[in-house]
Amino acid sequence: MKPRQADRLATSLLWLAASSIIILLGWFLVFILGRGLPCFSLEFFTGRDGVSSQLFNSFYILLLSLVFSLPVGIGAGIYLAEYAPANKYTDLIRLSTESLATVPSIVFGLFGMIIFVQVFGLGFTILGGAATLALLNLPILVRVTEESVRSVPENYKEASLALGANMWQTLRKVILPTALPGLMTGITLVAGRALGETAILIFTAGMNVSRQLFDVNPLAAGETLAVHLFAVKSNPLPGTNADQIADGTAALLIIVVLIFNLCLSLPIRFYQKRLLGK
C-alpha cells in the first residue's frame, strides 16, 4: 500500500473509532433514559416501594462524606503544592495518595466494615458509609487541589509576599480565591463519582432504608440510589414491579450524574473564563 493510501485508510479508521465511542455514549443515554423516564410517577417516588428515601440518602451520604474529606483533602493538596520540600517524606506522601487512588472501592468497603461495623460496633450506618466514602474522595481531592493551587501564577504569590503578607494570608486572600474554579470543578467530579458508588456502601451503610422520609439520624442504615439499583436488579423481590423500579432508578442516577457533569460545571467554567479574562 502506498503511504498516501495508508494515511487515508488510517484517518478514516480513527474517525470510525472515535465516532463509535460517541455513538456508544449517545446510545447508552438514550437507552437508559428511554426505558426509565416512562417509569417516573408519583408512585415511583413516594409509593410503597418508592425511591425518595434512597434519593435523600444518596445526597445525605454525599454531603457527609464531603464534610469528612474536604478539609483533609484540601489541606494535604495545599501542603503538597506550597509547603512540601522535595525529599523522601514528600515522595512517600505522594506515593500514598497515588496508592489510595487505585485502591479498589471494594477494599475500602471491607476496610470500612472492619473499622465501623466491627471495631466501633456501630453496625451498618450512614455515618460509617459516609466516612468510608470519604476515603474514596480523598486522593482525588488532594490531586485536584494540588493542581489548581499550582496553576495559580507564581507572581501572584510573590507580589503578595513582597507586600509583607505571610503565607497564610497569601493563601487565604490570593491563592485560594484564584484556585477556586479549578477546585470547584474537582469537587463536582468527586461528588458525581461518590453518588454512583456502590461497593463501599453495601458493606458500610447497608441495604436497608428508613421508612420515615428525610430521616437524618446518621446512625441509621441508609441505602442509596445506586445500592438500590444493585439490590433490585440482583435480588428482585417477588410481588414488586422490580424491573420498572430498576429502569426508573437507573434513569434517575443518570440524570443526577448529568446534572453534576453539565449543569454544575458549566457555570464554573464561565466563572473561570471571566476570572482569567479580566
Binding site: V72, I78, Y79, L80, I93, S96, S99, L100, V107, M167
Partner: peptide
C-alpha cells in the same frame, strides 16, 4: 495552618498504611 496542612498530608499516608494493615 502550616501544621494543619502537614497533618492532613500525614493522615493520607496513615490511611493507606492502616488499610494495608487491617485488611
Amino acid at each position: 495552618a502550616r501544621y494543619l496542612f502537614i497533618s492532613s498530608a500525614v493522615l493520607v499516608s496513615l490511611i493507606i498504611i492502616s488499610i494495608i494493615w487491617f485488611v
